[in-house]
Each structure stands twice: as C-alpha cells, then as structure tokens.
Write a protein that binds this DNA or RNA. Structure first.
Lengths: 257, 257
DNA sequence: GAGTGGTCTAGACCACATT
DNA sequence: ATGTGGTCTAGACCACTCA
C-alpha cells in the first residue's frame, strides 16, 4: 500500500479543503461514515478516523443520528477593558457589553458565592497561603439560554465578609464598585491569557463540543493600601474559543523618554 | 454490558486523574496500549481510543516507539504592549522580550518579505480591497532552534515600497520606527485575540502536537493622516498555547465622567 | 530481534431520533 | 422500521528505535 499519507488523513484533507473552500458551508451535512468508506474503498473504521480528525480540529460536529455537520462559529466581542469602567446604573457590566455589541440576544447569569481555600493559582497572585480563606463569586453567563462563559472572582474573605460583594445576586453597581467603597479601589490590573483545551468539567459546564479550546483569562486587581499596590482580587474567566473574540484597545500614551 | 460510561472514557478518566493528581508527572511514561488493553480486559483498539482522548486534550504525547508520555508545558511570557515601545539600539523587540523574562535561551528568527494580494482578514482591517497590493513581512521566531511563533505584518505596498520595512533582515531600530520615519507613526492599535485549533499548515510550521490550540492575535495599527486615524498595518501573530502566556498591564487612567 | 505506536480490516451490537 | 453515529472485537502488517 502506498503509505505516504494515510487514507484517513486524505479523507480528512479532502473534506477540510471543501470546508475552507466553501464547497461545504456552515451547517451543511457531510457524507455519512458509510458513504465515505465506500467512496474510498476502505472500512468504516477508517472513515470514522478521518472524520474524527476534523472533529478534533473543531471544524465539524456529529449530531447523532442526523449525521456530521459543518460547525458554525459566531464569536461575540469580549472587552476586558470594559470591566474596568463603572457601569451604567442598573446595568450589569456583562449585560451592557452584550447590548453594546450585538443585536437582541438575551443575556442571563447564575451567581453562586462560596467561602473556600484558595487554589495555587489564586494563592500566588494574592500573595496568600492555603490557610487564608477567600470568598469566591462564581458566575455562569449565558446568552439565549446557551452557556457563554465562566467568571470566578476571588477576594480574601476578610476584605468582603458581610458585604454586598458576597450577595449571590446581581449587584447593579458592580462588585468593583463595592470594593472601592470598602477602600479597595482597583487602580491597576494585570491580565494573563492562556490558551488550552478545556478540562472535562469546563467542557460539560459550558457544553463545549470536542475540538473547542478555551482561553483562561486571569485578571489580578491591585488596590493602593498604605501607599503600596496590593493585590485584592483575582478573577478567572474561562472563555470558549468558538464564542469569543477578546479585544483590547491601546493608545500610545504620552511618550516620554 | 454496562454502557453508562464507555470503557475508553474510563481509561481516559483514570489516566487523566493520575496526571492532574501528580501520580503521573511531566515526562513520565504511561502504560503501553497493550498493557492497558490487558488491564481493562478489552481490545487494543479501545485502549488506543482512550489514549487518543488525552492526546486531543493536549495532556500526553505519543513518542513512537518509546511510548506515551505526559506532556510538559513551559509557557513563555508574551507582552503585546512591549511591541509598542521603541526597542533598545541593536535589540530587536522579540529578542529583548525573551532576554527580559527568561533565563538564557537563544532566540532567532527567519524573515521573509513578499508582495501579495491581501486576505479578507487584512482587507477588512486596512479598509482596502483585494486589488490593492500589500507588502508582507513574515517572521518565524524560534527559541533554541524550536519554533515559537509566527508573526506576519501587512502594510499597503505604496507606503513602504523601497524602504527598510521591506528588507528581509533584522531591522535593529524596529519596523514600527521605520513606519514612523515615513510619517506613519502608530499612535493607536486594536488587539484582537481569537482561540482556535491550528490549521494543518500552522501545525506543521510550528511543529505543534495534536491537542495544541493557538491564539490568533491580530494587531491593527493606526496612524494619524490628515487629522484622521487611518489603519496602516495589520499584524497577525499565531501563538501556540503550550508556549505562551499573553500578558497585558492595565492602569486605570484619569477617571473622568 | 523485540517492542512500541500507526494504521487498517471486516465484521458486530447498541441507542437514538426521525419517518 | 430505518438509518445514523458510538462503541467494541480480534485480529493484521507496518515503520521505527533501542538494546
């Protein structure tokens, strides 16, 4: 057998080319496994292997038992910098962002608040150890009922115990505003963005298809305390790649030196 | 058969748990396909299927014929904002960044310059159509000889024809400096970050393992011309997820309104 | 030469949604 | 009832590297 390029690879290559060329458009149905096996004079298992390549590239999905379909990507705009602004009265930041950018889609969120021991990720950024309790505000955001992203904020418990920050409800003026009122106005933040495949838990919470990577966007917020910048809040966002474009605006500031 | 959770899924679950718990550490060897098949009293094909799950999650790699190994992640810091500064004399931005952050690793890059018709991506951002030629400056950056990322800058040909911008060499003072000297100083830029699986071409150029997503980081640079901000340069960076952490610094500016 | 993963075959039974 | 993908079996030959 000519083993230059495996059969399943060539099946994948051909279908991929059809997709990128537009011969196969969004939501269109691909040939069935049986059809491909026949057309390539191979076993069904090999056709399956070829299709699986494209599934893992995030290009197609299997919608059993209807068949394989070309996947659609409709990313929404996500602006970390917008989180910094004080939101309009009665307009949660998240809600505002959606309304700004896109046509009428219905945003919603589920909020949970918990007290827990900080993960390594949080410990390192807040300069605390595992024994220092943190308050966690977990939000699962959806659009039109479909999961959109996850947003977990962590603050040392001592800073926010008994305050609005820990209310498991929408806080219309924004939780950053609450922090500011408590004397912890965030004046500086560092964003880290990492790209990886989701954990199985993220995958099921966000209903991710296979081949969908996520951005892990960690924001560490600093406040000025005793004349020094101190980290007060760490927010971990999990953003599915097929639903987000992250945008930053950068203006060259008063170029000195 | 109890078909709650497929055998291959349970194989994957168990190994994944071992990895996240640290029982299986970086670079450690996993059981062979045959061993797993035996241990789970199933066929080799099913063991293979289980291992493939973890491969596609980017957790393990098959290093034939040595076996499967737990993958290591050593992301390096990538600061889009650093690209904005004028670099030190004789220090290319890229080189400087590496030196700043990490211990002694040897950066290198290969540069190609071409003239071509702009892609849709570039057209939209430069406000030009397919008939307007662009100059493209493609850089493949490596560290210690290993591919690190791709960086393609696009500028309308008319702006840079015959200038240093098109030299297929290192430009010590930086290409943004060259643009500034030509009267196109970039005063504002917009960063877009998208997360997806790589194309096969990216995959081979960057030697990506399966299960490695990329960030596509597009920077559109604007200059002031005739009192208006005009897009002059679009740079497309392809950043492998297993090699980068993208970092932004944000300082709350003179809060008005 | 032995052992590894890479690929392939030719079947099989199943759950599920649509017809 | 039919056809889809999901899973599984029990083999097979190959290319490659290491001892």
């Amino acid at each position: 057998m000519a083993r230059q390029r495996a059969i399943y690879q060539r099946i994948a290559d051909e279908l991929r080319a059809d997709i990128t060329a537009g011969t196969l458009r969004e939501d269109m149905r691909l040939p069935t496994e049986a059809e491909l096996a026949q057309r390539w004079k191979t076993s069904r298992a090999t056709a399956v292997q070829g299709l699986k390549v494209l599934v893992n590239e995030g290009l197609i999905v299997a919608d059993r038992p209807r068949g394989y379909f070309v996947r659609k990507r409709r990313p929404m705009v996500y602006r970390p910098q917008a989180e910094f602004r004080i939101p309009e009265p009665d307009a949660d930041i998240f809600r505002q962002r959606i309304a700004d950018e896109q046509d009428s889609r219905e945003p919603s969120q589920k909020i949970e608040v918990a007290i827990s021991s900080p993960s390594k990720t949080v410990q390192r950024r807040l300069h605390i150890d595992a024994k220092t309790a943190v308050a966690v505000r977990r939000r699962m955001r959806s659009i039109d009922g479909d999961p959109f992203n996850l947003n977990d904020s962590h603050v040392p418990l001592s800073l926010v115990e008994g305050t609005d920050w820990m209310s498991p409800e929408d806080v219309p003026r924004g939780t950053n505003r609450v922090l500011a009122e408590l004397g912890y106005e965030i004046i500086h933040s560092v964003d880290e963005i990492m790209v990886r495949m989701p954990t199985p838990e993220e995958s099921s919470r966000l209903a991710l298809g296979p081949g969908t990577p996520v951005a892990e966007h960690i924001v560490t917020g600093y406040a000025r305390r005793d004349g020094r910048e101190t980290p007060v809040q760490v927010t971990v966002n999990i953003l599915p790649g097929d639903r987000h474009v992250i945008i930053y605006d950068r203006v060259r500031e008063g170029e000195s030196a």
